[in-house]
Design a binder for these strands. Structure first.
Length: 167
DNA sequence: GCCAACGTTGGC
DNA sequence: GCCAACGTTGGC
């Protein structure tokens, strides 16, 4: 049995990718409670992270993709653990998937809340330029839209951005 | 806008 | 179960 201290010190770090034209950090800030469900993920590996591995209190980088300067721009916190992505159930919705239904959901999501903007964005080009970061999933598995970040990577990037530690 | 990488689908 | 075709992602 793990001690309480060990459990409490355990926190995982993640990276959530989004095209700002579809959903940006500003959009997240504007949501009620600055919270939104991370719906529409239709990749099994990304789903599995959200379904089984993310815990309330985990932190994630908020990454803007598919723009001139892709970059990490903010920090979010997981505030609700994996639950069925109901956007898969709506035949009219763009995330509809007939293979998923409320009785047997195929896709899952978490809720994330805005924590803060980075003091300055850290661009993909910068990340690529740092030898200590060349193990990042972002660099080797560029298309994975929800992915783990190692604690060392988390700290290096926060340092780079001039942003204070969270929590 | 192009195209490489890669995940998914479907024929066999 | 293989693999070609296809669609999507995302950097450039």
């Amino acid at each position: 049995m793990k001690s309480k201290e060990v459990e409490m010190s355990t926190r995982n770090y993640w990276l959530f990718k989004t095209e700002p034209s579809a959903f940006s950090l500003e959009d997240l800030k504007g949501r009620p409670d600055a919270t939104e469900h991370w719906d529409g993920v239709r990749n099994f590996q990304a789903r599995n992270f959200m379904r089984h591995e993310m815990k309330v209190g985990d932190l994630g980088f908020f990454y803007h993709s598919n723009i001139a300067e892709p970059a990490i721009v903010g920090i979010v916190e997981v505030v609700r653990e994996g639950y069925p992505d109901f956007t898969a159930f709506d035949p009219q919705g763009k995330y509809f998937d007939p293979k998923s239904n409320p009785e047997k959901p195929l896709w899952y999501m978490v809720d994330v809340r805005f924590v803060r903007e980075l003091a300055r964005p850290v661009t993909l080009a910068e990340l690529k330029g740092m030898a200590e970061l060349n193990g990042m999933v972002l660099l080797s598995r560029g298309r994975l839209s929800v992915q783990p970040v190692r604690e060392e990577e988390w700290k290096i990037i926060l340092g780079l951005s001039g942003t204070a530690e969270v929590g």
